[in-house]
């Protein structure tokens, strides 16, 4: 290190600092010796302790989420685990075509329920995703001011309609319409439940998708528009790709909603315990079956336990969906 002092090389400041009283800065340490400096940097003040406590508090919040999910899993598992491990034939359970828990001998083939759930959720998503993305793009990219606010409020209202009301709509409104339009005998079927579920899931997908679009920085749109891109090109080439993780999350949350919905599906699907072969067949879902049968099954009986195994299955599927969502978002990030 050179010991050459070179203070004068840059010249003195051209004019003295503007007349100021001694600066009221927080800590006039500047002229103190290094010992005081060191002490100040090691002093744990109120801010530091508050930070520490707040950190622990939010950690508690995070841990409680883990605790609750763990407790729920343990409860469900404890009710069904004995049966699942010792008495249940998993092959029959997963691929058996007959769900007849109350006849002798009982059949616990959950395939009709799994397939019913998949069919109805699939139809619901085919209906909900285009609707919801359209609504989100309109609200996020085209609607302005008042109109935008009103649309958002209306969509949030739609999300607040109780599911039993949707069930009634399925029973009383959709059923005759489907019978009439498609000329089918049974109006309570996969299509009916799918439409109802789709309409229920659409507001949630819309809200989250719109948030994802809003999170795209305005500067990206400006940069693309400055290149002469049309509005739709900007949306298609810049906004949607950037928002993709958020949009995927929106769809998966919608799927989760459709998957977990019980009462509306029970009312609109016809609850027939057979594998549906077309959208005009009635079907039953896992959730609806649990709701319909748990009340009748004797506590601790085989039937009761197998319903909890169904619950475990549901748990596993939801877990899988969430993992997939996580994986999609993560994969996208690491590539970006």
């Amino acid at each position: 290190m050179t010991s050459d002092p070179n203070k004068d090389s840059a010249g003195p400041p051209p004019k003295p600092a503007s007349p100021q009283p001694a600066s009221p800065g927080p800590l006039p340490l500047r002229h103190a010796g290094h010992h005081e400096w060191a002490t100040a940097l090691d002093h744990r003040d109120r801010t530091w302790w508050f930070d520490c406590i707040a950190r622990l508090a939010v950690l508690g919040g995070g841990l409680s989420a883990i605790l609750f999910i763990g407790a729920i899993f343990v409860f469900i598992a404890s009710q069904g685990i004995d049966f699942a491990l010792h008495h249940l034939n998993w092959l029959d359970f997963l691929f058996g075509k007959r769900w007849e828990p109350t006849v002798e001998p009982p059949e616990y083939g959950a395939l009709p329920l799994i397939m019913g759930t998949c069919w109805i959720t699939g139809v619901a998503m085919i209906i909900a995703v285009p609707l919801a993305f359209g609504a989100a793009i309109y609200i996020g990219e085209f609607a302005r001011g008042r109109q935008r606010e009103w649309l958002k409020i209306l969509i949030e209202l739609l999300a607040a309609i109780p599911s039993v009301v949707w069930g009634v709509i399925g029973l009383q409104v959709m059923k005759p319409i489907i019978q009439h339009v498609f000329g089918v005998q049974v109006g309570l079927n996969v299509l009916n439940a799918g439409i109802i579920l789709g309409l229920m899931a659409a507001p949630i997908i819309t809200t989250i998708a719109e948030d994802a679009l809003k999170a795209v920085p305005e500067t990206y749109r400006e940069a693309a528009e400055a290149l002469g891109a049309s509005r739709w090109q900007v949306i298609w080439k810049v906004v949607l790709p950037h928002a993709r993780p958020g949009l995927s999350a929106a769809v998966l949350l919608g799927i989760g909603r459709a998957f977990g919905e019980t009462i509306a599906v029970l009312m609109a699907s016809g609850h027939r315990l057979m594998i549906p072969e077309s959208v005009f067949d009635s079907a039953a879902t896992i959730t609806a079956t649990i709701a319909a049968e748990l009340g009748e099954a004797a506590h601790g009986s085989e039937h009761y336990q197998v319903l909890f195994v169904l619950g475990l299955l549901l748990f596993g599927i939801t877990f899988g969906i969430n993992l997939t969502a996580d994986w999609i978002v993560r994969g996208r990030r690491s590539r970006a």
Binding site: P26, L29, H34, W37, A38, A40, L41, D42, H43, R44, D45, T47, W48, D51
Partner: peptide
């Protein structure tokens, strides 16, 4: 920084404030 190793400063916020 001022004779203190920044890795072991106990109050990081005090360091950043300065």
């Amino acid at each position: 920084f001022a004779g203190r190793d920044v890795r072991t400063v106990r109050n990081l916020y005090a360091l950043r404030k300065r």
